[in-house]
Every structure is written in structure tokens, then in C-alpha cells.
């Protein structure tokens, strides 16, 4: 009986959330009560393999790889219906964007390819200060290595050309955002 009062040597369990990128997203959805309002409000849920409600739960269980194998977060069109309606007030649209960042950094080749659209867009912004729609789409086509992709845009391209809307765009701000991009990059690498 004496032993009962002897302090037990207690080794703290290893921290569960060593994965900072995952922990950031988990903190955004921690209070999810699994009501499913997000799924019911999402205009694109019909095309998702994981319902948003399911995905939040899986993230909280730490099933990062399983979530990164799904295409759900790539189908978010940032309409903010889920964020508006979430009874817990969770930033669900921002969590979808955070998952896109995570998938670009840690995901497989499929995920990295899906991230190209956003990365090419921002590279164009960094170079030109103001996005040049046509130059961006041309770079995107090249980066995707899909010879059929530009053909899909053929009809739209011709329509825009006919309306005088297919031009190089504003180059007055070229290079203007270089210092800000560089600074943000160094701050993000440091943190």
C-alpha cells in the first residue's frame, strides 16, 4: 500500500502536434461539431470525394495523408457559403486554402500539378506588378505540359481577340512588387 503514495515517475507523452502545418489547419477546425452545414452549403460538394464535414474530422484525427490524397480542397471555389453559415464560426474557406498550401508543399506529383495554377498566377503578379491575364495563361499551359489544354481555350481566345481584349496588358508596374515578395519570402522562411 505504501507504493500508492510514491510519486510515479511520469514521462510526458511526446507532443501530438509536431506537424506545424497540420496543427495550423487543425486549430482552424478544432471546434467543428460535425453538423454538416458546410457540406450542405457547398456548391461543389457533388464533385468531392470527401465531404467537407468528413474531411475536417479526418484532419482532427491526424489523417493528413488520406486528406492529401483526396481532391476535396482543390474543388473549393472560395464562395464562403460554409464560412458564412458555420454555426461554430470557423474559417472553413481559409482552411481549404491552407490545405492547398500544404498539398503544394508536401503533396505528391498530382497535388503539385494542381498547385501550378495558383503558383503561375502569383509568379506573373510578382514579375508584372499587375496580373497579365494572357501571359499568365500561356505560362500555365506550358507548365501543365498538356497539349490539349490550350485548345479548350481556343473559342474563348478568339472571342476575346475579336473584342480587342487579347493584349499583353499593363506593364507600367513591372518589377514593382519584387521587394515585397522577397521580404515576405524571407519572413516565411524564418518563421
Amino acid at each position: 500500500m505504501k507504493n500508492m503514495h510514491t510519486p510515479i515517475a511520469f514521462t510526458p507523452a511526446p507532443l501530438v502536434f509536431q506537424d506545424e502545418a497540420l496543427a495550423e489547419i487543425q486549430s482552424m477546425v478544432r471546434a467543428c461539431m460535425q453538423c454538416g452545414t458546410c457540406t450542405a452549403s457547398c456548391p461543389n460538394s457533388f464533385a468531392m470525394d470527401l465531404a467537407p464535414r468528413q474531411m475536417w474530422r479526418m484532419l482532427l484525427f491526424g489523417l493528413k495523408q488520406e486528406v492529401l490524397e483526396s481532391r476535396t480542397f482543390w474543388l473549393c471555389s472560395s464562395c464562403y457559403s460554409c464560412t458564412l453559415r458555420c454555426p461554430r464560426g470557423l474559417p472553413l474557406t481559409a482552411a481549404m486554402a491552407a490545405l492547398k498550401r500544404l498539398a503544394a508543399a508536401e503533396g505528391d506529383a498530382v497535388n503539385r500539378k494542381k498547385a501550378l495554377f495558383y503558383q503561375e498566377f502569383m509568379q506573373n503578379v510578382e514579375q508584372n506588378g499587375r496580373i497579365q491575364e494572357m501571359g499568365f495563361m500561356c505560362h500555365y499551359f506550358l507548365a501543365m505540359h498538356d497539349p490539349l489544354l490550350p485548345l479548350e481555350y481556343g473559342p474563348l481566345g478568339l472571342k476575346l481577340l475579336a473584342k480587342g481584349k487579347l493584349h499583353l496588358g499593363d506593364s507600367t508596374q513591372r518589377g514593382r512588387l519584387g521587394p515585397l515578395f522577397a521580404k515576405v519570402r524571407s519572413m516565411e522562411e524564418a518563421s
Partner: peptide, 17 residues
């Protein structure tokens, strides 16, 4: 001197940006 706000493409690339 205004510049691009990043539209809806920036958040999937960088939170700070």
C-alpha cells in the same frame, strides 16, 4: 502606384502575401 491584390490565387500560395 496600385498593384495586384493577389485575387483568389494568392491564398493557396502564401498566407502572409
Amino acid at each position: 502606384d496600385w498593384t495586384c491584390c493577389g485575387a483568389s490565387a494568392v491564398e493557396p500560395v502564401s498566407r502572409l502575401l
